[in-house]
Nucleic acid binder design. Structure first.
Ligand SMILES: [Mn+2]
Ligand SMILES: [Mn+2]
Ligand SMILES: [Zn+2]
Ligand SMILES: [Zn+2]
Lengths: 141, 141
DNA sequence: TATGAAAATGAAAATCATTTTCATATTATA
DNA sequence: TATAATATGAAAATGATTTTCATTTTCATA
C-alpha cells in the first residue's frame, strides 16, 4: 500500500533529528538540499501530511503558515504540551501546565466542547516582547 | 487623515446589522452587492483591516481564512468572549467562561504569557459532532 | 533476475485568500 | 473653484499549499 522511499525517510529523519523544533515545509526543503538529499517541495508536503495522519509528526497552524515537529511518543509518559505563539516575535513556546489540562476537562464536562490541544494555539505576547512593549510606552516619541 | 466614504459605512453597517455573525471578506462582498451597494474586494479588505485596528470589528483567523464580526462594546459591560471552532463542521462558538478568564490570568502571572483572547481560537469538536463521532464507532463497517 | 502494476517523484501549473499597484475618482479644505 | 490628500477598484502580484502529469521507483510475483 505504501512504499518506503528515501524521500520519506529523509523528511522524517530530519524532523526526528531536531526534536522540539518547529519547521516549515520550505525550511525542510532547504535543510534537505544542504544535506545533499534534495526533495521536491510537493513531495515534502505530501509526506508531512501523511506523517501527520500516521501520528509521526505534529502540525501547528499559524497565520504565517504551517509548522511541523517530530511527535515524541506522548502515549508513553511524555507530557502533553500546549502551544503559545507570540504575535510580536513569532516564536512558538511549548507549555506543560496542569491548570490548562484542568481547563480542557472543564470545557469538555461543562461546555461540551472537546478541545484538540494539537490544533489549538494560544496567541499573545511572550515575556520579552511584553517587556519591550512596556518600555516603548516610556520612550520619547 | 481619514475620509468618510459610503464604502466604509457600508462595510461597518453590514457587520453592525449582523451582530454575533462571523463573516468573511468574500461574504461581505456578496452581501453588499446584493444589497445594491457593491464594494470592491480590495476596498473591503482595507476597511476590515482599518476597522479592526480602530476597534470596531474583531477578526478571527482560521485555517480557512479570516472572519470578522462587529465589536460589541466590551468596555461597557459586555462580557469578553472566547472562540471555539469545531474542526468537523467549521462552526465557531462564542463562550463566556470565568474559568477561562482565570486561566488567562494564571498564564500571565505564572507563565509570563499574555494571551490575546481575540486571536486565540480553541480548536476541537462541538457537542453535535462529538456525538456523531461516537455513534459512528457503533455503526457497521 | 525479469516483469509489470502500483505507488512515488518533481517541475510546472493551478488554487485561493489576501495584498499591492496604479490610474481614476472622491473628499475636505482653502 | 482650485488643490492636495485620500479613497476606489480592476487587475496584477504574492505566497503558501495543492494538483497535474509525464517519468521514475518500488516490490511482489513469475
Ligand atoms: Mn501553569
Ligand atoms: Mn465555564
Ligand atoms: Zn515575542
Ligand atoms: Zn461541529
Amino acid at each position: 500500500m505504501s512504499h518506503s522511499t528515501k524521500q520519506r525517510q529523509a523528511v522524517l529523519a530530519c524532523l526526528s533529528g531536531r526534536r522540539g523544533e518547529l519547521l516549515s515545509a520550505a525550511e525542510l526543503t532547504q535543510i534537505l538540499r544542504q544535506a545533499g538529499s534534495p526533495v521536491g517541495l510537493a513531495t515534502i508536503y505530501r509526506h508531512l501530511t501523511r506523517l501527520e495522519e500516521a501520528g509521526f509528526v505534529h502540525r501547528v497552524n499559524t497565520p504565517e503558515g504551517a509548522f511541523y515537529r517530530y511527535c515524541e511518543e506522548e502515549s508513553s509518559g511524555g507530557r502533553e504540551c500546549f502551544l503559545l505563539r507570540c504575535e510580536s516575535c513569532g516564536q512558538i513556546l511549548h507549555l506543560d501546565c496542569s491548570h490548562l489540562r484542568a481547563l480542557y476537562e472543564h470545557l469538555e464536562r461543562d461546555h461540551h466542547f472537546i478541545v484538540n490541544p494539537r490544533e489549538t494555539v494560544f496567541s499573545g505576547l511572550c515575556e520579552a516582547c511584553a517587556r519591550r512593549g512596556k518600555e516603548a510606552l516610556h520612550e520619547q516619541p
